[in-house]
Simulated assay, not measured.
Amino acid sequence: MSDIPENASPSADKPARQSRAGLTSTGARKASAKSERSRAREFALQALYQHLVGRNTPAAIDAFTRDLAGFHKADSAHYDALLHGCIAQAEELDTLITPLLDRPMAEISPIEHGVMWIGAYELQHCLDVPWRVVLNECIEMAKEFGGTDGHKYVNGILNGLAQKLRTTEIAAEQAKGQGGKPRG
Rank of each mutant, 00 (worst) to 15 (best):
N7T: 06
A8E: 05
A8C: 11
S9C: 05
S9Y: 04
S9N: 08
S9F: 01
P10I: 00
P10Q: 13
S11Y: 00
D13E: 09
K14L: 14
K14N: 01
P15M: 10
P15E: 11
A16E: 09
Q18E: 12
Q18W: 02
Q18L: 12
Q18V: 12
Q18I: 12
S19T: 04
R20Y: 04
A21P: 06
G22R: 00
G22E: 10
G22M: 09
G22F: 01
T24Q: 09
T24L: 03
T24K: 03
T26H: 07
G27R: 08
G27D: 01
G27Y: 08
A28N: 15
A28L: 07
A28T: 09
K30M: 15
K30W: 05
K30G: 14
K30P: 03
K30C: 14
S32Q: 10
A33D: 15
S35I: 13
S35R: 09
S35V: 05
E36T: 14
E36D: 13
E36R: 15
E36W: 02
E36N: 06
R37C: 04
R37T: 14
S38K: 01
S38L: 13
A40D: 12
A40Q: 03
R41L: 09
R41Y: 11
R41N: 12
F43T: 10
F43R: 05
F43I: 07
F43P: 03
A44F: 01
